[in-house]
Write a protein that binds this DNA or RNA. Sequence first.
DNA 1: AATAGCAACAACCGCAGTCCC
DNA 2: AGGGACTGCGGTTGTTGCTAT
Length: 254
Amino acid sequence: MGRQPCCDKLGVKKGPWTAEEDKKLVNFIITHGHCCWRSVPKLAGLRRCGKSCRLRWTNYLRPDLKRGLLNDDEEQLVIDLHARLGNRWSKIAARLPGRTDNEIKNHWNTHIKKKLTKMGIDPVTHEPLHQPDTPYEASDGAAINDHQPKDCGNVSSTTTELSPLTDESRSSSESGNEEDPLMNVIWSEVFLNDLSWNFTGLSSREEYGELDTLSWSLDNRNILDDHQSFGFGGFGEIDFNSLDINTTIKSSLP
DNA sequence: AATAGCAACAACCGCAGTCCC
DNA sequence: AGGGACTGCGGTTGTTGCTAT
């Protein structure tokens, strides 16, 4: 007897999540938690497989997630950790509060890999690619010494401990991270139990279209402020590592 | 203005590890 | 001890937006 598929392939929706699905999932998890991902979609009224729900929650909907690009501190830490741990993205992510393995993996593949290659460093081994005739130019224009130390410390000589970002570095690193306006909307909708939520019937990107246009900028502060004015202040001050999710969320309610 | 190419990232897939009966 | 169920992880793909031509 073969193993049961993780979900019934028939009738299971795939592809981008809609705002309504997000809301259902968030609603369900804050109410019931996620005892068993396999049963979450059924109980939450979603036509998704449990795996997809788990991924959506951990990579996008979790309230303790930071949004936006990794800043320099975080990027540096990722490089350091990658030099020691290799492609163990979940282990690396565990050292960066508010970041997911998927996010870090994506950032590595799209940004850091190129950056290191450009600097003449093999992104896999963290060793110099070859001995150049002339020093490499770093992306910021600084010349890189062509005799890089063997260890990844070549890239970072500052961060040597396998520890999460300190509060100091974290707070300084958060300067470039705005809260996701969309997430604020979803969460505020969930908390306020606003029945006017109605995105049904639109394709996902279109669904989020208007919200997507709220690109990362200081202007978005107006929107965030609006939500805060409704009594929803976000999760910035909550330590999700030490608190039960249900307790935390409920206690953060106005 | 149109479109081809590229970059970014969300999501899927398959496998491995762990748990539990 | 063995096998099924479930979760988590890492690699890969698909879609969308942006930029250059």
